[in-house]
Amino acid sequence: MRFATWNVNSLKVRLPQVIQWLADTGVEVLCLQELKMDQDVFPLAEIEAAGYRAAWFGQKTYNGVAILVKAPLEMSEVVAGIPGYDDEQRRVIAATVNGIRVICGYFVNGEAVDSPKYPYKLEWLSRLEGYVAAELARYPDLLLLGDYNIAPEDRDVYDPEGWRGQVLCSEPERDAFRRLIALGLSDSFRLFNQEEKQYSWWDYRQMMFRRNKGVRIDHILVSDALKARAQVCEIDKAPRKWERPSDHTPVILHLND
């Protein structure tokens, strides 16, 4: 099975690309972030016509997440949001697919380390950590996929010195990432690929993609119980080259049966 994550930066704008990518790749599970659409306008008919089922937690403007599962696979135990956390921003959805607990998250950006949004990011990360710990206790086979808005190490940024201490790379954020790992998870991309200059997001401005000046902030963490089944994790740059692309590109994890 293949599990993928993709921040589409508006599903309304990028729906044709999502449909095309699903047709091209046939991935079994796709987690989407930044739907930027309300719950009642999710394009379920188009998704189903493409051969996929969907669970979503929509929100206009900036947020919204979804899990797409290729039929005839089924989703069960769908949970929207972080239980017990009264968060008005819709950033998390989880479901069980073929015995694997899939958590899709659109992590808070934080804007800047001196922004009022930064403490919210750290609080949100703490709440997520508690939620993931509880989920791991119930579901040893677990994947945490999404746009983390965290570059875990200097090699995940095109200019480590320029990004030093900035949002996405600040030590409290990286420490939160390490705490997730300490729960019993692994960064699936780094299980296989140790090369530098591997990124999943590039700013639209200044030809950053063409110059490969990006950051790796889209991740798939795999639980210890699943790690032996991981075969490869790859960044698919092809959609970033399409017309009107998202500024993110998909990350795909292959698990054997």
Rank of each mutant, 00 (worst) to 15 (best):
V92L: 01
R101E: 02
V102E: 11
A112S: 02
K117R: 12
P116I: 00
D114K: 11
E88S: 14
I100G: 07
Q89N: 15
G110V: 00
S76E: 15
E88H: 12
D86Q: 14
C104V: 08
M75V: 08
V102A: 10
L73N: 02
R90Y: 07
E74A: 15
R90H: 14
E111M: 05
G105P: 00
E77M: 12
A112V: 05
E77L: 03
G105I: 15
D114C: 12
T96D: 11
D86N: 12
V113P: 12
A71S: 15
V102M: 09
A95I: 04
S76M: 06
K117D: 01
V102F: 08
Y106D: 07
A71M: 11
I103H: 06
G81K: 00
E88N: 14
T96L: 00
N109P: 02
M75K: 08
V97K: 12
D87R: 04
A94C: 10
R91E: 09
P72C: 11
E74H: 07
Y106C: 06
T96E: 11
G99A: 14
D87F: 00
N98E: 14
E111N: 09
Q89G: 02
V78M: 03
K117Y: 04
P83L: 07
I93G: 03
V79C: 12
A95W: 06
A95F: 01
G99W: 14
I100E: 02
D114G: 11
I93Y: 06
P116R: 02
Q89K: 14
G84N: 12
E77S: 08
D86T: 13
P83M: 09
G110L: 07
A80S: 13
Y106I: 05
R90L: 00
F107G: 01
A95G: 07
I82K: 08
I93Q: 09
A95C: 13
G99K: 10
A80N: 14
D114V: 09
Y106Q: 11
M75Y: 11
Q89D: 15
V92Y: 02
P72N: 14
S76T: 15
E77H: 15
V108W: 05
S76N: 13
F107T: 02
R101W: 08
G110C: 04
M75W: 10
E88W: 03
G105K: 07
E111Q: 14
P83S: 07
A71Q: 10
P72T: 04
A94L: 09
V97H: 12
M75P: 10
S76Q: 15
I93V: 15
D114W: 08
S115V: 04
I93M: 07
V113R: 03
S76G: 12
A95T: 04
E88P: 06
S76C: 13
V92P: 02
E74D: 13
G99R: 10
G81T: 06
I103M: 10
G105W: 04
Q89F: 11
R101L: 08
I100V: 15
